[in-house]
């Protein structure tokens, strides 16, 4: 009885839940401003770090970036070294990753979205794919080492372009599958209904009507997946890509050492060749003690980042086209 009275007695200081009813507005607004400032600061820190990184890389690397650097093989002398081997390796690996992961990823997306009924098996595949997306990339490297380098050695030729590309293709499959499914889901059902009503089979409807509507969304996803693959280092180190490669895959001996036709002329010399890629070359140069190699690393980072920006711009352009058409 006494305690319930004291709760409402004005002489007592207000405590507990009642405290929040005190309209101490100046203090509360001050806290609000503080919070907003903190949010701004967090945002600015993230941006400032990115700016710092980019400026530092440009500062270190621009001086080293010249034609000789782009067209030379690696060397023990930092000033003679170049990235042509890594560039050719990256091109080849990316081509094969695209050739393998595009049909497989899109096919899997089509199956899940267009051809399957909602049963336990489909759900199992879905859960499985979202789990695969969370597996660290270095684990894919271990899989590649055991499966592609060792088990399939007669086909891949060991630590080769093909083994590396297959490993990366598995790594980016979940990205492509998810993107494909989202693009397919964005296609209105009325288009499917209309096609089916005209007597088309599901595949005819998908191939003639759904895919053309979804293709730019799918391609956006594929490019984003490739831009993830192009920067991946860990899985390729694990499968044993070389760090010093004074040659390029394929049978083109003269500049620019890279000819897509090699894939038809001498597929084994391309696919089974040892290789290096840009991120591994960068890793190798960073881990050397001499500062001159660090400048090489910065210059190679600039090249890699330019490639990434170009790929992302293409993806954004495709996405915008896609969005405009839907409106």
């Amino acid at each position: 009885m006494a305690s319930s009275n004291s709760d409402f007695s004005p002489s007592q200081p207000v405590v507990g839940p009642a405290a929040s009813f005190v309209a101490n507005l100046p203090k509360r607004y001050a806290l609000d401003r503080l919070f907003l400032v903190a949010a701004w600061v967090a945002m600015l820190i993230a941006m400032a770090v990115l700016g710092w990184l980019l400026l530092d890389v440009l500062d270190q690397g621009l001086g080293r970036l010249n034609w000789q650097f782009l067209t030379s093989f690696p060397s023990r002398r930092a000033s003679n070294a170049g990235i042509i081997g890594a560039l050719a390796g990256t091109f080849w690996v990316m081509i094969i990753v695209a050739v393998v992961s595009f049909p497989v990823g899109v096919g899997a997306g089509l199956y899940l979205e267009e051809f399957s009924s909602d049963n336990w098996f489909t759900r199992f595949i879905e859960i499985n794919i979202s789990n695969l997306a969370g597996v660290p990339s270095i684990i894919y490297g271990l899989l590649g080492l055991a499966a592609f380098v060792r088990l399939m050695e007669p086909i891949t030729g060991g630590r080769s372009v093909l083994a590396g590309a297959l490993t990366l293709a598995l790594l980016v499959l979940p990205i492509i599958i998810v993107a494909t499914r989202e693009a397919l889901r964005a296609v209105p059902d009325s288009i499917r209904m209309a096609g089916l009503a005209m007597g088309g089979t599901r595949w005819q409807v998908v191939a003639a009507h759904v895919m053309p509507a979804a293709i730019s969304g799918i391609l956006t996803g594929v490019i984003l997946a490739l831009s993830r693959a192009i920067g991946e280092t860990a899985p390729l180190i694990t499968i044993g890509a070389l760090t010093f490669v004074p040659f390029t895959p394929g049978c083109t001996e003269e500049f620019p050492y890279f000819n897509p036709l090699d894939l038809l002329r001498c597929p084994a010399e391309v696919l089974q060749s040892p290789f290096t890629v840009m991120p591994i070359q960068i890793f190798n140069w960073i881990s050397r003690p001499q500062p001159a190699f660090h400048e090489n690393a910065a210059a190679a980072i600039i090249v890699l980042m330019v490639m990434l920006v170009m790929m992302n711009s293409l993806a954004i352009w495709l996405r915008n086209r896609f969005q405009r058409r839907r409106e």
Binding site: A46, L53, V57, S227, P279, I282, F283, I286, L304
Partner: peptide, 11 residues
Amino acid sequence: IAGVPSVVFGY
């Protein structure tokens, strides 16, 4: 930031 390769962050 999300698209920067991790080897670049390592550098």
